[in-house]
């Protein structure tokens, strides 16, 4: 089932990028490339649960996207303000924030989302928490109320 999805995705990718179906030589080369990629993917063992989490996650990701997009816009305006202010209002600090996401997929999404939110960057992921570099104390406190974690857990489907 996963291999079928993989092949279909690759076929779609080929169709989009080439945009033609009349040159039989190019079609044959494309089919050969798809076969090679599926073989290499199987050999590397990357066609698994992690790369194809199932249809439910994709639907929930659509719900998560607008929230993430809004966070990205806020954080960019935040950076813009800091860059343009002559006094450089930053007082950087490191904080450790615990996380309760269950799957690797959820943790990675959470860590990457933190990187995209205002004033915080994920430095390290360990078993006892995420090491966050925050530009200000307020940015560090903003993470601890857990609204983003709740969003990620809804995406993960464990809530």
């Amino acid at each position: 089932m996963r291999y079928l999805t993989f092949v279909l995705v690759l076929c779609g990718f080929y169709a989009v990028l080439s945009g033609q179906f009349h040159n039989s030589f190019l079609m044959a080369v494309g089919a050969g490339c798809i076969a090679l990629i599926v073989f290499l993917g199987a050999r590397m063992g990357i066609v698994d649960e992690e790369s194809y989490p199932g249809p439910g996650v994709w639907l929930r990701a659509l719900l998560y996207a607008p929230y993430l997009l809004w966070q990205v816009i806020i954080s960019n305006i935040d950076v813009l303000k800091r860059v343009l202010s002559p006094s450089m209002p930053v007082s950087p600090r490191m904080v450790r924030v615990p996380y309760s996401t269950k799957t690797a997929f959820g943790t990675v999404t959470y860590a990457n989302s933190i990187t995209l939110t205002p004033g915080t960057v994920t430095v390290e992921v360990t078993d006892d928490g995420l090491l966050i570099h925050a530009l200000t104390a307020e940015a560090a406190d903003g993470l601890k109320d857990g609204s983003m974690e709740a969003q990620v857990k809804r995406l993960e489907g464990t809530k």
Binding site: V79, M88, V90, G119
Partner: peptide, 22 residues
């Protein structure tokens, strides 16, 4: 803004904020 931030911020970790987000 990201480029200017990359120049102006005081250390490597702060520069990440400017470069990675913008």
């Amino acid at each position: 803004a990201g480029s200017v931030g990359l120049l102006r911020f005081p250390d490597f970790y702060s520069r990440l904020h400017a470069a990675g987000k913008t």
